[in-house]
Amino acid sequence: METNQTNETWNQPKQENKKIVAGICAILIGGIGVHKFILGYSKEGIIQIILSVVSCGLLGIIPFIEGIIYLTKSDEDFYNTYQVGKRPWF
């Protein structure tokens, strides 16, 4: 009886996926850039705050769309795109 597995995942560290938190924050309070700060994009978060203030909240549609995109991506695709690949916008 062989107990070795070729795809051993039990001893690999778990990767933190911030998909749900970032997506919900982007939809609910995205105008203040919280989702950008959660993903580690400080510069983009500050830009989002400035855009919201300058446009009186009219550009709040951008984080709303981002939140929908975040939540519709697969976990692996989200992790590779926004956390590993560091793609800050859309």
Rank of each mutant, 00 (worst) to 15 (best):
P63M: 13
G85S: 04
L28T: 12
T72H: 00
Q48S: 13
L71Q: 06
P63N: 14
I69P: 01
P88Q: 09
K14Y: 15
I47P: 03
L58F: 06
I29H: 07
N11Q: 14
E16N: 08
S52M: 07
V53M: 11
P63R: 09
W10T: 07
W10M: 13
N80M: 08
G85W: 03
I46R: 14
I68A: 10
I49M: 15
K19R: 15
Q48T: 08
P13S: 12
G57L: 11
G57Y: 06
R87W: 11
I27L: 11
D77L: 13
K14P: 05
G31M: 05
P13G: 06
C25P: 02
A22C: 01
L71G: 00
F37W: 08
W89M: 12
I69M: 11
I29M: 10
G23R: 13
L58R: 13
P63W: 14
E8T: 09
K73P: 01
Y41T: 07
Q12P: 01
I29W: 03
A22G: 05
W89F: 03
G30H: 04
E16C: 08
I49W: 14
L28C: 05
I65F: 12
Q15K: 13
N17M: 09
L71F: 04
P63S: 14
T6I: 09
I20N: 12
A26Y: 12
C25H: 00
S55Y: 07
Q48E: 08
G45D: 00
W10Y: 12
F78T: 04
I46W: 13
Y82T: 07
F78Q: 02
I46M: 08
N7C: 02
I27V: 03
T3R: 13
Q12M: 14
P88Y: 08
G60A: 13
K18G: 00
C56E: 01
K18E: 02
I61F: 12
E76K: 13
V84F: 05
R87G: 04
I32L: 07
T81R: 00
N4R: 14
I69G: 06
Y70I: 04
V34D: 05
E44A: 10
T3D: 10
H35R: 10
Q48F: 06
